[in-house]
């Protein structure tokens, strides 16, 4: 019994840490977790407008996009100083070993979010806009079989010409591309 206690205690600490990962963090780790949560909430707010499940409102879309743009780019990367690997963090070591790629994706998020803010007034095209996907011809420099991501070659003004749902998906796929490589998922 006595010998088991420390282990049980540790297990409890572990469970508590897992359950309160976001609220238990401190300092820069907490700040960046809060920023991610703010971006998640912004996406959640406008997602039903993108799917047609809620009435489209351009100013709501624009303000959500601006919120995300403000938290991306340099503002995002400055929250990842070397060594900020508090055990509650979900950031993988690749953030620091592959910093250039991380920085590129953070900048791409800013570009696509600013693009969405411009595109907000364009309204929806409906799923499957040809410019954004489906046609297969926008894949990059090597024709129909190109592997490059269109967002890497586009400015916010270019993206601003797209329907809002296309710009939105371009932005959220950038979120995913970064999570793929740099976020530890459960």
């Amino acid at each position: 019994m006595f010998r088991k206690t420390p282990l049980t205690g540790l297990a409890l600490v572990g469970l508590t840490a897992a359950a309160f990962a976001h609220t238990g963090a401190t300092g820069v780790v907490k700040e960046r977790m809060d920023a991610m949560k703010t971006m998640q909430d912004a996406i959640k707010t406008i997602k039903p407008m993108m799917t047609g499940d809620a009435p489209y409102d351009a100013s709501t879309v624009r303000s959500a996009a601006e919120k995300i743009a403000a938290l991306s780019g340099d503002d995002l990367t400055r929250h990842y100083p070397e060594g900020s690997t508090d055990h509650l963090t979900q950031a993988l070591p690749a953030v620091w070993t592959d910093w250039d790629r991380f920085e590129t994706l953070a900048a791409q998020l800013e570009t696509t979010a600013l693009g969405l803010a411009i595109a907000a007034d364009n309204g929806l095209h409906g799923a499957g806009h040809m410019m954004e996907n489906g046609s297969g011809m926008m894949g990059g420099g090597s024709g129909m079989m190109g592997g490059a991501q269109p967002a890497q070659m586009m400015t916010a003004d270019h993206i601003g010409q797209m329907p809002a749902d296309g710009a939105f998906a371009m932005m959220t796929r950038t979120c995913s591309a970064c999570h793929d490589q740099f976020r530890k998922d459960d």
Partner: peptide, 12 residues
């Protein structure tokens, strides 16, 4: 889009 029902996006 990569967006999940709760507003989070795919990773992994």
């Amino acid at each position: 889009s990569g967006v999940m029902p709760g507003g989070d996006t795919f990773g992994g």
